[in-house]
Structures are given as C-alpha cells and as structure tokens.
Write a protein that binds this DNA or RNA. Structure first.
Lengths: 343, 343
DNA sequence: TATTAGCACTCCAATCAAATGAGTGCTAAC
DNA sequence: GTTAGCACTCATTTGATTGGAGTGCTAATA
C-alpha cells in the first residue's frame, strides 16, 4: 500500500479485475464507466500512463488497452485480494471417498480439484520423513527369497524382496525378526543411519554376514522415500487462449506429464512457509521455465507430525486467485487428518 | 490382393508411401515421376480416379492430390506391408533397467517407446487372472488392526489392512495362517469363489465369525485386479499438424490422461488374437471415439502362463506402421520373461 | 485400345490494400 | 486537477487478386 495513492490503487484494482474476467486488454473508457470513481476516460488515461511507468501494467502494443504486469498481479495478490474469510457454505464440498489406498485418494483429489476449478492440478504424496517404523516382519518366501514387510506409523506398508543364497533356518529368522523390531521400532527415517545399522550388525553376532544383506535391504527400503506426484486436468489449459497455442500447450502438458520438474515447486513450497501455508508464483517467479506464462498456487497439507504434502494449481496468470486460494484452503482443511483413522 | 490389378496396387502403394512421408496430398505428377512404372501423369490420373471410385483414396477437396482413406490404409497394412522380418540389428535396443517395482518398469517402457517412436504410448499392467497364490501371512499390527500380506506366483505382493474389534490371540492367528496357506496355496484367482470361502469358514469351526471377516478381506484383496494403465509421450501428437489443433489435441490428450477409455482397447486386443499378436486400428476402427483421426497399434506381451498385458502406440493415421510394428515386436520379445527372474 | 499431350477449370493459399475500430497521447479549455 | 476533443497508431478484419498445384476431359497418338 505504499506510495501508490488511493486513486491509483482503485484504478489498478479495476483494471486487474476486469482483465481477470475478460482476458482482453482493458481500456480507459471501460474503467471510467464501470467504476464509481466518476472520472472521465481522459483522467483514467493519465493515471494509466502513470501506472505503466511504475511498472504495474503493460501495453501489449501501442494503442491497445493495458494488461497487468507480473508486478501488477503481485500487488493484487498481496494487497488487493483481501481474504474476506467468507463463509465456506457456498463452497462445493469436497467429497472424498474413503478408499484405503492413499494413491487413489490423491488421484481423486487432483481430479476433483481440476474439475471444480478448471485449471490443471498437482498433488504429491506426503513426505514421511518424520514417520516412524511401527512393525517389521521377515518371511521365508521360498528357498532363495525373503520377503520383508515394513509398516510405518501412518499405516504405510512397504514390501521388499530379498534374494538369498541359501534358506535361513527358522531360528535365525525368528531372531532376526526380534532384532529388527526391537531396534528399529519407533525410529524415524533420519534416525536410521549407518551407525544404527552397524550397531545392529554387531549385535547380530555370528550371523553378521547374512544379516548384513538383510539389514541393508531393509534400511534402504525404509529410507527410500518415493515422492509421487499426481496431476490432473492438464487439458484445462486449452480453455485459456493465451496458453493454448501448440508451442506453449505442448511444453506445459509435457512438464505436467513428466512431473520431475514439478518437484522443484514442492520443495520450494514446503520450505518457504508463509503464515497461511499458501504460496503464489506469478509468471517468472515460478522455478519452472515452461510456466513463465502461468501462475501457480501451492498449498501444504499436513497429516500431523511433520507428515506433509503439497497440492498445487496451475493456470493462466489471470486465474481467479480468490477462488483458487479458497479452494485450496478448504481442501487442505478437509485433507488434514483424513488419513488419521485408517480405512 | 483381390480384383485390384497389379498396376493399381503399385500406384496405391506409391501414393500411400509418399503420403506417409510427406503428410501432404499426393498428385498424379509426383507418382508418375517417382515410380518405375513409366506412365504419364494422365494415365496415373485415370487410375487414381478409379482408385477413388473403389474407395481406397480420397480427395480432401477438388483439385487437390489424393490421400489414403481408412480402407486404403487397411489394404496397405494387410497386403502391402510385407513383414520382411528384417534383421533387428539396426533397432535401438530397449535397455530396460532392472528395477524391482513393476510399476516403474512399465512407466519406463512407455516412456522409452514414446521417445523412440515419436508417438504416444500406453502400457497396461499384466492381467494376473491365471496367477496363483504363493504365500499368505497375517500379522497382528496393533490391537485393532491385522495386516494381511499376500504374495502371488510372479512375486506380486499385495497388502491389506483389516480392522478388528478386539485383538486375536496368538494361537488363533497361527491357526488362521495355517488354514489360509494350506487352502489357498496354489489357487488361481478364478478358483477362489464363494464355495471355497464358505468351505473354509466351516473348517474354521468355532472362530467362524471372526474368520469370516478376515477371509472376506483376503479374498477381496486377491481377486481385486487393478488394471493400471500408464501412458507417455502424449505431447508427441503436437508433432503432427493434422492432430494438433486445439480441439483434437485436447480431446486426445484428455483420453490419454484419463485412461479409462483406453481399457476398451485392452480388452479388445487381448481377446481377438491374430496370429502375430499385433493389432491395428485405423481411424474409426478404434472403439474410442476421440481417436477417429488416429491409428492405434497394440501388441500383447506375455509373461508366461496367461499373465498378459497390452502395450500400444497411438499416432496419426499416417504413422510409420512398419517401424511401429517392428518396435512392438522387439519390445514384447524383450518384455517377455523379464519378470521371470525376480530382481 | 491403351496411352499421352494439351487445355480449361477448380480451389487453396498467399499477398496486399483498404476499411474498421478500439485505444492512446496530447493540447487546450474549463 | 479534470475534461473534451482530436489526431494518430496499430491489430484485426475484409475482400480482391494472384499463383500454383492438381484434376477432368478431349483429342491426338502409338
């Protein structure tokens, strides 16, 4: 709200709102008519000229209307978009079916969000770094394979097949199971480091050779954290002419399909924590090059105890920030704790 | 090779081959020059006129060259594309990294295939209907949860969380495990029907109430066959102008993203088995409406014992059928048996 | 009788000019 | 400080023109 002056702000606000609706450059006459400022188009023109000099708006070409610059959008998001904390009553409720496989829940969430917003969406699996081991079991599958089943605190189950030279006898298997459970139980992933492992190898005593193989496999499985990213609604971008020419559409959809690049967004959004938990990247603010003509809004959802994931919406710069941010708030609220009670 | 006559066939062949390369309607003059027929353009014109009457080629508009009709492509694929069984030496080898998670292998295959062909690709997880149960284990996870781990013949592991009212004592658990393994071991999915289950409930005797819950959960888990479909290279369609206008591209990419519709292709391709295992759908021959401007080539891969999956390539009608079919053959060969030796 | 040369005709695609109109910037008056 | 008025700019649309590729048909040819 700095040195802009109230009138300029009102005009900027009007310009941006109008542009968000129409997607067309907006001219002085429109503003003069559709605001309660009672100023002639000429005056508006002067102010617009100023606003342009200050970098808030931009002319696509001489003698066209103005459109917001990245700086303009930024100002709008930071200052003009008052979060009026409106009642969520009229918000479409996110009916999340209670499937047990988290994967399916996430896919579903992405799809619903895409449908209700008409933008492209992404959601990551939660990062379980703070998650603890709850239960481990080794079973002899056949003569040369061992199956390790590991259950983490939030009922995340991991499986690992371990090849063996020769079968283990029952007693060894039992001991191993006891050893694994008693040592690793309640530990979180960062705590399971080399020191822990070598200590266990010591305790294993005479078996230490075979035990080593097993331990390494188990440790690897536990600590390997696959960050899955699910996207949906990629084709929604065709609804916005400014994104739907072959070139841009292709690049955008490619990044959504390939997903790796999206990971940068995630780490960004998880670390830099504003108080609301919602982050807005406008145009070049996004770390992803192909999204320079887009805006990305991300939010963090939390299932308690540092178990966090990211959900994001990708749309044109003139996206409906208000609706999008509300949707994300609502969604993260609902998502929070949905996995707490299993099934 | 019916009543077409050798010369007509040669001309048709030339037209299609030229069109496959250029993507432009091909005129009589081009054919007259680039074939060894030594016929003037006028003669070619007459023949083309005939071919058009017979429905093999089509004029986009008067006074343009001809392009193949669906019927023309069909003839080409059925009769002109002699599978010369060329040495696969010059084929780029599919280097499939040996990750243990099948999911990742499939994703990788789809991606590589898309990259090497420049078309969109899909691949399904194998259908395990004939697969047998190898190992089952129930574990008491905590006071009100049981974990069932089921391993199938091809080392496919399934997990299921079973909610309990009150914990089971050790003996019951042991008995259950024995019962499950002794009864279900070696059974394939279709064999596990209601009769089997109720018989087991009988055998369970006094526990039958609690056993029922567990059995149902296990049976459900085993029989629930999730047909996963992975796609890749959707944005490759932008490389073909005839597919890359907003409308078509959007619809196509949407079907690739949503995937459900692709399932119809799969069942089709698994059932109707030609001797080569390769199926070609040209334009409207495809069961999927949005692909009427595309051709789809599918192949079946088999991991032995009726464990089958489908892999497919989606491209413009003027795709390089020869290369595509070769690639698929090569791929299915490599894929066959890759999961036989675990890890 | 089959093939070919020649020519009129069609139609797409590219090019260009003029007309349109939304919007600006500037100046002079209020 | 605000406004009316006017000249100017420039993307977009429209229509007319042209060029070229290709066909279909007819008449000549082998």
């Amino acid at each position: 709200m700095d040195e802009l002056g109230e009138r300029k702000i009102k005009i900027l606000d009007a310009i941006i709102r109008t542009y968000l609706e129409t997607g067309e450059p907006v001219g002085s006459r429109t503003i003069s008519k559709y605001t309660d400022l009672n100023l002639s188009s000429a005056t508006i023109r002067n102010e617009m000229s100023n606003l342009e000099e200050l970098g808030y708006i931009v002319q696509p070409h001489t003698s066209a209307g103005r459109i917001p610059s990245d700086k303009g959008y930024r100002f709008y998001v930071d200052h003009l978009l008052q979060n009026k904390d409106k009642e969520i009553s009229d918000m479409k409720d996110f009916v999340i079916e209670h499937t047990e496989r988290m994967e399916n829940v996430l896919k579903q969430v992405a799809r619903m969000l895409a449908q209700s917003t008409n933008y492209a969406t992404m959601i990551t699996s939660p990062k379980y770094s703070a998650n603890k081991v709850k239960f481990i079991q080794l079973s002899q599958l056949d003569d040369n394979q061992l199956l390790a089943v590991i259950v983490m605190e939030a009922n995340v189950v991991k499986n690992k097949m371990i090849p063996l030279e020769k079968p283990l006898d029952n007693e060894t298997l039992l001991r191993l199971n006891v050893l694994l459970n008693s040592t690793l139980n309640g530990m979180s992933i960062p705590e399971i480091n080399l020191a822990t492992i070598s200590k266990m190898k010591e305790q294993a005593g005479s078996y230490s050779d075979i035990v080593g193989v097993v331990l390494d496999a188990v440790a690897e499985t536990i600590s390997q954290e696959e960050l899955e990213i699910y996207t949906s609604g990629a084709t929604n971008i065709f609804k916005y002419p400014e994104l739907s020419d072959s070139q841009k559409a292709s690049e955008l959809i490619y990044t959504l399909e390939e997903k790796q690049q999206l990971a940068t967004l995630v780490s960004d959004s998880l670390s830099d924590e504003s108080n609301t938990g919602i982050q807005v990247y406008i145009g070049n603010e996004s770390p992803i090059q192909t999204m320079k003509d887009c805006s990305v809004v991300t939010a963090t959802y939390e299932l308690g105890e540092g178990v966090k994931g990211t959900v994001g919406i990708i749309g044109p710069k003139r996206m409906d920030y208000e609706k999008v941010m509300d949707s994300l708030k609502e969604l993260t609220n609902q998502l929070d704790g949905i996995f707490k009670k299993p099934s």
